[in-house]
């Protein structure tokens, strides 16, 4: 399989302050990767770096659900494909959604169990529902790579497992920041652990047990 992206000795940060150091990371198309580590370790920075490089092939699930609360769930999910429709069609959909778009968006919402909220205002959704709407936006976007920053953090474990499965099924490659160790081991095939801005572990999931990962979360 060809490499989707290869990072070598990369650093990254904000405003001149480096957060990531000496990152060596090669990702092949089709991989399912969990990025793990303590909060503040640099996971989001790594995901942002990857998103920058892969933007034209990526559907993003940002950490905050980033919904426009004054618009309906339909419009928020439809936004996943704004770039692939004519501006005229986008504007028309804003006022009067086309039937074909309603059904397509409806399918994406059905996958995350939100079909009944199609025309609810996004601001009226609960935290978990907003997160699922954000996942639906990525599913509707449908690009081959999905990058998700804690995409299921607000869901219970059963629902989270279901949604993770949908995310992985909907996109060829998945790069997801996760903090739930069993979920990560069950749904991804590679674990990358970051600590203090460096990659400290990069191994196949099947070779790891929860005990191998717990030290990175302690203290």
């Amino acid at each position: 399989m060809s490499a989707l992206i290869a990072l070598s000795k990369e650093s990254a940060g904000y405003g001149g302050r480096a957060v990531l150091h000496d990152i060596d990371l090669t990702i092949a198309a089709g991989e399912r990767i969990a990025v793990m580590g303590r909060s503040g370790a640099g996971k989001s920075t790594l995901l942002n770096l990857l998103h920058e490089r892969l933007a034209d092939r990526t559907a993003l699930i940002p950490q905050a659900a980033a919904l426009v609360k004054t618009l309906s769930v339909f419009h928020n999910v439809y936004m996943g494909r704004l770039d692939r429709h004519s501006t005229w069609r986008n504007l028309r959909n804003l006022v009067r959604p086309a039937a074909c778009d309603i059904s397509a968006v409806g399918q994406a919402l059905a996958q995350v169990d939100l079909a009944d909220k199609l025309f609810a205002p996004a601001g009226a959704l609960s935290g978990g529902q907003q997160q699922r709407a954000s996942v639906a936006r990525a599913l509707f976007n449908g690009r081959p790579v999905v990058i998700g920053d804690e995409p299921v953090s607000a869901l219970d474990r059963v629902q989270a497992a279901d949604i993770l499965q949908k995310i992985c099924a909907g996109h060829g490659t998945a790069i997801l920041a996760l903090h739930d160790i069993p979920l990560a081991l069950a749904h991804t095939d590679r674990i990358v652990v970051i600590d203090a801005g460096r990659i400290v572990l990069d191994a196949a999931s099947r070779t790891l047990s929860p005990a191998d990962l717990i030290p990175y979360y302690g203290g």
């Binding site: 993003l60 426009v68 004054t70 936004m79 504007l91 804003l94």
Partner: peptide
């Protein structure tokens, strides 16, 4: 905005104006 926010008129109509309305 989220990092993958649209641009131009799409951004204006789907993100900026609805958020500021």
């Amino acid at each position: 905005y989220r990092p993958d926010a649209p641009k131009g008129l799409n951004l204006y109509c789907y993100e900026t104006v609805p958020r500021l309305y």
